[in-house]
């Protein structure tokens, strides 16, 4: 559905996007993840034909974003970081205006506008002036604006930024419900959002793609091994040596002792792709120590992200 090849974009001498190449299949949700100013917005703006690329080609639904930009624009719904709202208009008039300039057939327009407002939960504020809406509703009107012409591709730039937790959950649900019928690219710097909504993640930093995979594969760790946390009561040194002696344990990464007690927290790393919890549990019990807790401690997306985007 979306095919980006070797796209580079300069702003003056600054390289904002550097040879980015990726594909998105129909019906997929792709998450752009990256620190601020990493090139997420620029990439999206190139895809939406707002900015031309300095080098490289991008096609959306088979149309080139530069040479066939009008065809691309008909098939794209775009919500920029700041929803592009005419504050003096009423919600219904605004959505109707967007439907008209996006080329929705005049006979279908009323129905399309009503359906979109229902879907995004703004039908009951349709007669309000946009200026008077709360941030959350403005965001929804922004999403409605991107959806009204039922585009093949939806591009959402930080759709949940500035919302309260309840609204964030609602917007995420909305986005998940839209997948399947629409191909979606969304950008964010909020990590849990990606694991919750996206099927595939691309981490961008300094204009380059530094990692691209399914969220669960990324969090599996960069080495392919599992980590587990164990809480045991007993003599520390002895436990540590016994645990590290286990065949499937490659190392004890950290060990901490709780204040004024004999309880210790260990973080273990397995040999690649081995399940070590049963053996660890067995070993602790056999030695007569007390096992309080044992749980998987895979890398969080935060760890992966920091690892990839922090320069040594």
């Amino acid at each position: 559905m979306i095919d980006v090849r070797q796209v580079t974009r300069y702003f003056g001498r600054v390289k904002a996007v550097d040879q980015v190449t990726f594909q998105v299949e129909k019906g997929e949700i792709l998450g752009f993840l990256g620190p601020n100013a990493a090139g997420k917005t620029t990439t999206m703006r190139i895809l939406t034909t707002f900015l031309p690329a300095t080098k490289g080609t991008a096609t959306v639904a088979g149309f080139d974003v530069h040479t066939q930009s009008m065809e691309v624009r008909k098939r794209i719904g775009y919500m920029p970081e700041n929803p592009p709202l005419y504050h003096e208009m009423r919600v219904r008039d605004y959505i109707d205006f967007v439907a008209a300039i996006k080329g929705v057939d005049p006979r279908d327009r009323k129905r399309a506008v009503a359906e979109t407002m229902d879907k995004t939960g703004i039908a009951h504020v349709s007669d309000r002036v946009i200026k008077t809406l709360s941030k959350g509703y403005k965001q929804r009107v922004g999403i409605a604006q991107a959806l009204v012409h039922n585009p093949d591709v939806l591009i959402l730039d930080e759709p949940t930024v500035g919302l309260d937790p309840k609204q964030i959950i609602e917007v995420r649900e909305l986005i998940k419900n839209l997948a399947g019928n629409h191909t979606i690219i969304l950008s964010t710097h909020i990590l849990p959002e990606v694991s919750m909504t996206c099927q595939r993640v691309m981490i961008i930093d300094h204009g380059r793609i530094v990692a691209e995979d399914r969220p669960e594969n990324l969090t599996r760790g960069l080495t392919g091994s599992h980590r587990i946390g164990v809480v045991v009561k007993g003599p520390k040194k002895e436990i540590q040596s016994k645990l590290s002696a286990l065949k499937t344990v490659s190392q004890v990464i950290t060990s901490e002792t709780e204040k004024d007690s004999d309880t210790h927290h260990f973080l273990l790393e397995s040999v690649a792709d081995e399940e070590i919890r049963p053996q660890v549990a067995k070993s602790v019990i056999e030695n007569g120590w007390e096992l309080y807790e044992i749980k998987p401690e895979d890398l969080s997306l935060e760890d992966v992200f920091l690892h990839l985007t922090t320069k040594e």
Partner: peptide, 14 residues
């Protein structure tokens, strides 16, 4: 200023 230019320039309007 309000960002609606992004809507205008990404719509099929010349």
């Amino acid at each position: 200023r309000s960002g609606t230019i992004e809507l205008l320039l990404t719509s099929p309007v010349t």
